[in-house]
């Protein structure tokens, strides 16, 4: 047990030291972007991996979150904290619209519905110019401040890391509880779950609500971090990227989103050798494709295994957790 604690400590230390060692503001900015994506991917792990409800339209929630906070802060004079709350709330409300089709549809049909939802939201963002300023986007979104100090990239980094830690605890407790069991039962066999007394509608609403709320929070972070948002950040390709992150990390693993998002973000950078500029995106997407096709459980289990190998197994991991 002692050795495991050391292991966790080392990882925590690496996470804390990262921006101090890197020191490079742009790299930390990119890391922040990937952490924001990690929040969305964590929501997708909950909704898709645990509850079995696919979504290929999460860029819409990301966008709704980003626009809600920006517009409430800029046009209604909300304090930023309230803008964040409004973003999350708005996404949860919209998630109800999307979960209603899921009462009836699943698999491909549900995925097409979520794609349609994503597109509809995007088209509205582009065209409702009086509200969103259309394709030009929204400028001058204020950044976060604390005690009069404007947040720099490193501040955002620590805030994001803390947020992700909390969200991780949140989904861990939920998925390890009777609720998570209902999610998984619904995912594995909806009919059998219902005949076992599970009201799947409630759990679909909950799963969509959680992941939409996560995406809304991510959108709010993105808006205030970058200071500028425009519709092109919320296109369909982004939705597929989020799902790709969750799958690369491990769709059925609690760490899936947290591991997947930075890997998908930084993988292309690894191939950015001089003279290779044209190939790096292709190489990165090829590797992700290979992971998705050949490693259905993603990379998180590998990380877990590696960690266990170095720092020892959890005592209660095999058999009788409460025995």
């Amino acid at each position: 047990m002692q050795r495991r604690k050391i292991g966790f400590l080392i990882i925590a230390l690496l996470v804390v030291l990262y921006p101090l060692v890197i020191g490079d503001s742009y790299k930390v900015y990119i890391m922040n972007r990937s952490l924001i994506h990690a929040i969305i991917a964590m929501g997708l792990v909950t909704q898709v991996g645990f509850a079995g409800q696919i979504s290929l339209g999460h860029a819409a929630f990301y966008g709704i979150g980003a626009y809600t906070t920006s517009l409430t802060v800029l046009k209604l004079g909300f304090p930023i904290g309230l803008g964040f709350l409004a973003a999350i709330l708005m996404c949860v409300i919209f998630s109800v619209f999307l979960s209603v089709p899921s009462f009836k549809l699943s698999g491909f049909f549900l995925s097409l519905t979520t794609i349609a939802f994503g597109h509809i939201v995007w088209v509205i963002i582009v065209n409702w110019q009086s509200l969103t300023n259309g394709p030009l986007g929204v400028f001058g979104i204020p950044g976060l401040k604390l005690f009069g100090i404007k947040f720099n990239n490193t501040h955002y980094y620590y805030l994001l890391v803390a947020t992700i830690a909390l969200l991780y605890l949140f989904i861990k407790r939920i998925t390890n509880s009777f609720i998570g069991r209902a999610f998984m039962a619904m995912r594995d066999d909806e009919l059998a779950a219902e005949c076992s007394g599970i009201n799947t509608r409630n759990f679909k609403l909950l799963a969509f609500g959680i992941s939409a709320g996560f995406a809304g929070l991510a959108g709010a972070f993105y808006a205030h971090l970058s200071g500028f948002i425009s519709p092109e950040s919320f296109v369909f390709a982004e939705s597929t990227k989020f799902v790709g992150m969750a799958v690369t990390g491990g769709l059925r693993h609690l760490l899936g989103g947290i591991i997947g998002a930075p890997i998908v973000t930084f993988l292309p950078e690894l191939f950015r050798f001089p003279g290779w500029e044209t190939y790096y995106m292709m190489a990165a997407t090829f590797i992700i494709l290979m992971i998705v096709v050949f490693m259905p459980d993603g990379l998180a289990p590998l990380f877990e295994k590696g960690f266990n190998k170095i720092f020892g197994e959890r005592d209660d991991v095999k058999g009788g957790s409460s025995e």
Binding site: A185, S196, G197, I198
Partner: peptide, 19 residues
């Protein structure tokens, strides 16, 4: 037979204890 693909024996029974 319709069991849950990724649930253990104990968890399977617990699903129906939900309420």
């Amino acid at each position: 037979i319709r069991l849950f693909e990724r649930l253990s024996v104990l968890e399977t029974v617990l699903v129906a204890r939900h309420a």
